[in-house]
Design a protein around this nucleic acid. Sequence first.
DNA 1: ATCGCCCCGTGATCAGGATCACAAATAGCC
DNA 2: GGCTATTTGTGATCCTGATCACGGGGCGAT
Lengths: 237, 237
Amino acid sequence: MRAPYGLNILDNCLACPMREEHLFCNLPVAALQRLNEIKSTAVYPKSAMLFIEGQQPRGVFVLCTGKAKLSTSSAEGKTVITKISEAGDVLGLSATISNRPYEVTAEMIEPGQANFITRDALLHFLREHGEVAVRVAEQLSRNYYTAYEGIRTLGLTNSPSERFAKLLLGWSNSPGNGDPLQVKLKLTHEEIAEMIGTTRETVSRLFSQFKKKQLLQLKGATLIIRNKAALEKMASS
Amino acid sequence: MRAPYGLNILDNCLACPMREEHLFCNLPVAALQRLNEIKSTAVYPKSAMLFIEGQQPRGVFVLCTGKAKLSTSSAEGKTVITKISEAGDVLGLSATISNRPYEVTAEMIEPGQANFITRDALLHFLREHGEVAVRVAEQLSRNYYTAYEGIRTLGLTNSPSERFAKLLLGWSNSPGNGDPLQVKLKLTHEEIAEMIGTTRETVSRLFSQFKKKQLLQLKGATLIIRNKAALEKMASS
DNA sequence: ATCGCCCCGTGATCAGGATCACAAATAGCC
DNA sequence: GGCTATTTGTGATCCTGATCACGGGGCGAT
């Protein structure tokens, strides 16, 4: 098996090591077998676009490895990142289900593999396998909750510092990862700014301030949280 | 049939005059009949709470008549209104499906009737009637899109005036209603502020400015849009 | 090594809203 | 019809973060 971009390919969903943790992948064998037949697999380099905001939905992408950022932009070039997707996420689901244009752009920020399922194949598949439709509804609910959290933080929180604190805590409470106080930074200040609705400069200043206040520390690209309690107080202020 | 709060009760979904326009109500007769059996009907006065953010989901409400506002609040009492729900909307769906706490508070702002379906009954119903599960997925996708729009406007738009213009245009393009240039105002400035993430005072000033600029006009509680083109330019600026 | 490109840090300025504080107006309500 | 409670208009002040500007640093290509 070729390994472009230095990655191993997971060709068979049934043999996928992460199958169990992934909502959409942890299916009855029969369904998964069928899924395995209708999917096509590809590996993407960094900054590859899986799909672009406004395109007619071609189908869904199941992210197997790597990370992607989901973003939306305004006419004037301002951008918001709505989510950093990780392995196991299903991208483009709501657009594909409802047959409306993709509402976000999905761009790889870490190279990885994604399985693609065309809209037609997916719809057929869902009709055949009712139990999967429930998964779809679950995933949609999840997406909704995430979007919803976004609204809460953007709407209820007018200070960038508060949102910044929230973001840092979100990273440190990363799921599965036992509350690490160290996080590898993978986003540029610009991208962080796009996540919390502020500017690059402000993010830069926030890092400075937070360092000065002993809330955090930077070792190269590793972020160390020094005073979690204080961050939590800021975040919920 | 009693008519509390001056409203007629729609007791039978099959005979509902608005059945066709409502995504969740326009079902095959067999399914609707069953739905009719498992629902319970109630009429709510203004400012009645259907459910409150954080509560365990008891089930869903199908709004038959009237309007409700969906909102979420922070610890410090700041509030965002995420949506004004109209007849035909299904409230509490994602929370009920995923069995997570209601993520918003639903409060009637115009008295009306709602049919309630318990979580258990709904889940049974969905299993029996697969075609309805598709409706649910559709409705969830819809909700997602709405939430998503919220993020876009809150995140990409930092000026209240822009968001205000957007809101006005949203009203004037109200669905089904052939682009009326007149809209009956039903929200207080405070509530409008909560929709566009600003303060009551700013909304007041925005109305003044927009009137001065001949963009709109007020006749009592009726809003008349005077210069739609200009509003559109502001909204997409 | 050198160039060029993208990131990052930080200063100076500036404006738009948040906030506070009243007064006027309106809407319900008995 | 009058009375209270809510809603609205508007002024004054203040302050945060957006914007502009520029220099330094890292890193990959050639």
